[in-house]
Design a protein around this nucleic acid. Structure first.
Lengths: 241, 241
DNA sequence: TCTACTTACGAACACCGTTCGCGTCAAGTA
DNA sequence: TACTTGACGCGAACGGTGTTCGTAAGTAGA
């Protein structure tokens, strides 16, 4: 939650500070909070300037004094939740586990906020909190003996994987909620449906999908996430000193 | 491009076929083509029902006779381009290289169609062509001696990685095009900018990002894709017989 | 020729992001 | 204390979006 002044990324113009605030009824922080509440409750699609403004009983145009545009607002929202990611101090001996912990923490933070991950896919995360997370992961990788060039790229790939899976997960969760059903039962029902579909495929053209329908649909989302995480980190570990 | 009748996935209602077509001026195939042309030229954001209908000199409502809604249309568009992915016949000895070839082919197909990957992130790919790709990849993995449970999950993770990276790549390409600049020069300019930003960070809080700014921003997008692909497939290979 | 049925499509509904211009009100100055 | 200034608040409007509905139109079969 530490976000003392950092230099603004040069490709984001931000909103020029007024010299004197007239009436501080609205603030950027409040707007970001309201946006996060909406995204958590109704999903990223429900986040609109009008919807947020309605929370404060005003019109959409009032927000543009505190936020350049919607894209920047989404970036601010994403950076805010990055503040919730736990960043441990590096312990070289267990760097792999630490990286996994951070990945899980980041994943959890994102899924807790519904499908906000989509906002992260559309941006280069460069806010203060996102940088804190990047710095932390990089430190762990380097402490583990991973060469800097490899660590930098691994960071990039891990982030991509993290965000993509979080987004996919949130879509599944949303589909469940849309049917007014808990996620566990939902994935159960959907699994059966998908399973039946695979097994109904013509055997001549889809022998393998048919034969291994069970395997294709097995496992929970978080188990699959962990599986992919293992693949990536095992791969990175091969480069470690 | 083979798409003889498959059973419709049970969770997609589709549009119920009329018994007799009156005047076949419009067809689903034409609509999908028009959508693909627009997405390739102007990006997924530009794809709207009205925009597609305008190609045929009609209104948006005319499309709903051939397509259930926009979501289905996007899914159909994605499946169409899956038909362009090259699916080799398995050669067990070089299964890793074959998987990479398919991944590269899929990645190329998606980036060639701009940011259509976003449509794939929002759906479980289940069209005939997507299934053909899945079947092909699964066949290669199994031929390479990867256990079915691992192969099925690896397929899932590879697909996620593929699509996510293609989406990210397209966004970068789009940012370049938006500035009326070739992608190569753009990434060059952006790299310098990002590099400068990392180096301008306060050294006390971001020592590693600062010290390794060069590594953080090095490499082309396709090189990073390849790097992540290697990580994943090396990981999978550890499970192979 | 008449009827039944399916498609085409304009209009409308309820949204969206963003801009513009006007009214308001707090702070600085005389 | 009175006046001036200027940033903020915000209603209205612009040009979009996905989707639905009712109706017009046109073809196939009787």
């Amino acid at each position: 939650m530490t976000d003392t002044e950092l230099p603004l990324p040069p490709w984001r113009r931000g909103v020029q500070k007024r010299t004197r605030p007239a009436r501080p009824a609205l603030s950027q922080a409040q707007i970001v909070d309201a946006g996060l509440r909406i995204v958590a409750e109704e999903g990223i699609e429900a986040v609109s300037m009008r919807r947020i403004a309605a929370v404060f009983g005003t019109g959409a145009s009032s927000l543009y004094a505190h936020v350049a545009n919607k894209e920047e607002l989404l970036a601010l929202m994403f950076d805010r939740i990055c503040g919730d990611v736990v960043v441990p101090t590096p312990e070289p001996a267990r760097w792999q586990e630490q990286i996994k912990e951070m990945a899980r923490s980041g994943h959890a933070v994102m899924t807790r906020h519904n499908d906000i991950a989509r906002a992260a896919l559309a941006t280069v995360p460069s806010g203060p909190n996102a940088l804190r997370v990047s710095e932390g992961m990089l430190a762990i990788l380097l402490a583990g003996g991973v060469p800097p060039e490899v660590a930098a790229w691994a960071l990039d790939r891990l982030f991509l994987y993290l965000v993509a899976d979080a987004y996919e997960s949130s879509l599944h969760a949303q589909a469940a909620a849309g049917r007014g059903v808990g996620e566990a039962e939902m994935s159960e029902a959907f699994r059966d449906q998908l399973n039946g579909y695979f097994e109904s495929l013509p055997a001549d053209r889809f022998p393998n999908l048919r034969a291994h329908a069970r395997a294709m649909t097995s496992g929970r989302q978080d188990e699959r996430f962990e599986f992919g995480l293992d693949l990536l980190i095992d791969g990175v570990a091969r480069y470690a000193a």
